[in-house]
Simulated scan of single mutants.
Amino acid sequence: MSRIAYVNGEFVPLDEARISILDRGFLFADGIYEVSAVLDGKLVDNEAHLVRLARSVGEIALPLPETLERIEEIQKELIARNDLVEGVVYLQVTRGAADRDFAFPKGVKPTLVIFTQVKNIVDSPAARNGIAVKTLPDIRWARRDIKSVALLAQVLAKQAAAEAGCQEAWMVEDGLITEGGSSTVFIVTRNDVIVTRPNSNAILPGCTRKALIALAEERQIRIEERAFSVEEARAAKEAFITSASSFLQPVVTIDGAPVGDGKPGPVAKRLREIYIDFARTTSQ
């Protein structure tokens, strides 16, 4: 039975979902996306994702075709129609379909597409065993704080990582790690301080990052928001990534060299447990 997707006001079978070849998301990557996790059939920290969606579309002067409240209703309807217990809901809004011209078209309604995807998040082998990462030059544009659908640089980086037997790429600029190809990067120093890069135009303001920092601070776990180098990451006691679609995954090797003892560390394990508890108790 085909999954059900939402396309411009209609719920349709996924294999019948269509948009115009003139859609500006297709022609120019003129659009914004969001991914929210689903656990036990409920949305995890979805308000934070919708707030970020509103910020991103505002940064590129793209009006939403529906209110945030209606978008959440659609997300929940898709979860129900697809009997989704664990996975993600993907949302994309573009400037709509018009004859190809770089300037914004007038009188065009934005395109809104939403679909679900089954994914094992909680009992993921990557979370149990840890992941390998590969560092690569960060060749992306200067407004990485906008969750743009223009992801070619990340695609190329993650493909290079995959060809090297790694599960994630870490982007490096001026010797400093910015973020993962689709994740936020954290390290744990030898003094048990958790370090992550501060929000700026250089990185996406991660929703899972934000929640995890708040959860750690509630427990008096020390967090430092500062830039750090590849060398510091390689010398760290632990490292891990966060994202909506993976929650938290330990990093056990960087460019083939082990992090710490090469196994998921106690800090990452504990923080993952804390986040999963948060996700289960606050999901809606």
Rank of each mutant, 00 (worst) to 15 (best):
W141T: 09
N120Y: 02
R219S: 10
F11E: 04
A233G: 04
A279N: 00
R234Q: 15
A29V: 00
D23R: 00
G9Y: 03
D261R: 04
V51Y: 04
H49W: 02
I213L: 08
V195A: 11
K109G: 12
A150N: 09
D101I: 14
V89Y: 08
S243Y: 01
I74V: 13
R55C: 08
V259F: 02
V267I: 13
G9R: 07
T184I: 03
K76T: 10
T135C: 01
V195T: 05
I146Y: 11
G175R: 02
I74M: 07
I19M: 01
R81V: 07
P125F: 07
E73I: 01
D15E: 15
L27K: 11
A257W: 05
G9W: 01
A61Q: 10
L78T: 06
R197K: 13
V188D: 05
D123L: 13
N129K: 12
A161V: 02
I177L: 11
L43W: 10
L53K: 12
G130M: 05
A132R: 15
E231R: 13
V89L: 11
I32M: 12
V88W: 04
V193P: 04
F11Q: 05
A257I: 01
E232M: 04
P105I: 12
D40C: 12
L27H: 04
R280Q: 14
E232G: 14
R55E: 11
V172S: 05
A103R: 11
D15K: 08
I276E: 03
A216C: 15
V7D: 04
D15P: 15
Y275K: 07
I241R: 03
K263Q: 07
K237T: 06
L91Y: 02
V57W: 06
V38W: 03
A233W: 05
R128G: 09
R144F: 09
L84H: 05
L248V: 12
G9L: 00
N129S: 12
A211Q: 07
K134I: 15
F102A: 12
